[in-house]
């Protein structure tokens, strides 16, 4: 549990983060979105004290972070940034080992952990571990940056536009991987992005920031259907809103008995995926299969469209 109370940062008398209060549940993903300069990075960096707040407190599991030594606090919190910041004079293995080494883990444990992480992030340890950062592609560098943040098994991860430099395909893949890793490890993640789709895809809750204030802190569906202010509404994007909303809704509740033509869709997909498939294949309904591939009914265009109209 992270409790943030009245957190404020001023530079030369001008507040860039103003009086932010929020409670973040352990094991959840909180995504901070906002336009450039709205104070997202500053807010994030106050959590691991890379920036010292002008006012306010951050409590992690009931302990005020000011009562810890800054470097000890940071070793407990994974930190990944857009330009990955890999150490150019160290191999990938040594980079990933940064925090475990600082914590004095035994060699064998570090080596095993490095292997494990590279495999987790789908990088071949034998090939990638001995390389230097400049011998990797941008996507690989970014994944190594994430591996380094995860290395010492932190309960909490701060990520500042970790996928910012990736092309859309690799980016989507990296998001899926992060979600899978997070679900497996149960980590608490605070992630900054200015991509609303990324926020909706990854966030259990989204905090929308504007001019240093948190305009709304709510689950993605609420952000879409009940934007708290004009700023939030504009970030959501009026024309994209229905599709984003559909992307949050699972197929399962709309499955009705019956059959339909053509290739089936899995219950794990979103209504947005189902709609896309209907449009592209010109079908009124899709057969639905469960995780094992067993037929469980169909979903119709009519049901889908009315489900996509948010409650008012």
């Amino acid at each position: 549990m992270i409790r943030i109370e009245g957190l404020t940062k001023e530079y030369a008398g001008k507040a860039v983060v103003r009086d932010v209060t929020m409670a973040i549940e352990s094991g959840t993903v909180t995504v901070i979105v906002g336009t450039s300069g709205s104070g997202k990075s500053t807010f994030l960096r106050m959590v691991n004290r890379l920036v010292e707040p002008t006012a306010g407190t951050v409590e992690i599991d009931g302990v005020d972070t000011r009562r810890m030594k800054a470097h000890e606090l940071r070793r407990r919190i994974g930190y990944a940034i857009q330009d990955h910041g890999l150490f150019p004079h160290w191999t990938v293995a040594r980079n990933i080992a940064t925090v475990p080494r600082l914590l004095g883990w035994p060699r064998a444990r570090i080596a095993a952990r490095v292997r494990e992480l590279l495999e987790l992030l789908q990088l071949d340890p034998d090939e990638i571990a001995p390389r230097y950062p400049h011998q990797l592609s941008g996507g690989q560098q970014q994944r190594v940056g994430v591996a380094r943040a995860l290395a010492a098994r932190p309960d909490m991860l701060l990520m500042d536009e970790p996928f910012g430099a990736l092309d859309p395909v690799i980016r989507a893949k990296a998001q899926d991987d992060l979600k899978a890793i997070q679900e497996r490890l149960g980590s608490t993640i605070l992630l900054v992005t200015h991509d609303m789709s990324e926020a909706i895809k990854l966030g259990d809750r989204i905090a929308v920031m504007s001019e240093g204030r948190v305009e709304q802190f709510a689950p993605p569906a609420d952000i879409l259907t009940r934007p708290a202010s004009a700023v939030v509404e504009s970030l959501v994007g009026e024309e994209d809103r229905p599709f984003r909303y559909l992307s949050l809704l699972p197929i399962a509740p709309l499955v009705e008995p019956g059959t339909a033509e053509g290739p089936p869709i899995g219950t794990g997909h979103s209504l947005r995926d189902a709609l896309a498939e209907m449009i592209w294949s010109g079908r009124q309904a899709l057969p639905v299969v469960d995780d094992e591939g067993a037929a469980c009914g169909r979903v119709t265009r009519g049901a889908l469209l009315s489900a996509g109209r948010p409650p008012r």
Partner: peptide
């Protein structure tokens, strides 16, 4: 970014 990572990792 390297300086930031060094600080952020708790050196």
């Amino acid at each position: 970014a390297v300086a930031e990572a060094a600080r952020g990792s708790g050196m």
